[in-house]
């Protein structure tokens, strides 16, 4: 059964049709990649699923229940975690406080006016940080993290509410190749072990082709292709608008462009 059903979703800004009638499903335990050129409408889709934007038309259903016009807060309680394209954490917090905050919210313990935060859910927070490889930085101030680490922290935050569905907008942007693969492998493990479904966008094709169960391609706000890695890769339309020749993400085909002579 589908965890997430997106049907006929549309959104315009002024005259620009950013998303124009998009329909797709995410199955339980599926690792689904949403790819497409810059400005295709991927983040806008995310923002509608997550409640940051209200769709002009169409519906979003989580486990059969419509969430299309709920607030981000309600959608989080319904079991959707999210990471942002421009990573967002609480800059004045330590790393662990960021995660503790999410845990407190998940447990409904925000409106407690006494008792320090320090020990609350500390072990659990550290366990979450450990999962994303950040446990050793728990007590650093989060504003001084390198960008790639901010991304990992964000993932830990998003995992705090045991989500059914994880929305990740370019989760590995700014990370080194190995960490990138490790992080995605970790997310993939969550998918398999805990039955979490993941919808993510990426411009890193190494990651997409290696890990995604299925790929949905968006261009100019419309769905132009859908399928597994091999079929997407072979799709001429997708190559034309998005993949190009593949030389920047494939070792083997890495023909040097004419003009760049080896020194």
């Amino acid at each position: 059964m589908s965890v997430l059903e997106v049907a006929g979703l549309a959104k315009s800004f002024g005259g620009v049709k950013a998303v124009d009638g998009v329909t797709f499903n995410v199955e339980r335990g599926e690792f689904l990649a949403l790819i497409g050129p810059n400005g295709a409408g991927k983040s806008t889709c995310f923002n509608m699923i997550n409640g940051q934007l209200t769709p002009d038309a169409g519906d979003v259903r989580l486990d059969g229940r419509s969430i299309a016009r709920l607030s981000p807060r309600q959608i989080w309680s319904a079991g959707v975690g999210r990471t942002f394209q421009i990573a967002a954490t609480f800059a004045s917090f330590t790393v662990i406080e960021n995660v503790q905050m999410a845990l407190l919210s998940h447990r409904g313990e925000v409106y407690r006016f006494v008792g320090g935060v320090g020990p609350r859910h500390r072990e659990e927070a550290i366990a979450l940080l450990d999962r994303v490889g950040m446990a050793d930085q728990s007590y650093r101030s989060s504003r001084e993290l390198a960008y790639g680490d901010v991304k990992r922290l964000e993932l830990a935050i998003a995992l705090a509410n045991d989500p059914k569905l994880l929305l990740m907008d370019e989760p590995t942007a700014g990370m080194a190749t190995k960490e990138r693969n490790e992080l995605i492998a970790l997310v993939k493990r969550l998918v398999v072990e805990h039955g979490i479904s993941v919808l993510f966008t990426e411009h890193s094709m190494d990651v997409v082709f290696t890990f995604a169960d299925r790929i949905v391609v968006l261009a100019r706000g419309r769905l132009i292709a859908e399928g597994d890695a091999a079929s997407i890769r072979a799709n001429k339309d997708v190559q034309a608008v998005y993949l190009g020749t593949g030389k920047v993400f494939e070792r083997k085909g890495a023909a040097r462009p004419s003009g760049a002579q080896a020194p």
Binding site: N38, A173, Y242
Partner: peptide
């Protein structure tokens, strides 16, 4: 190249 489509990276 961060966050840019492969065609644009090319």
């Amino acid at each position: 190249s961060e966050g840019v489509a492969p065609v644009i990276v090319e």
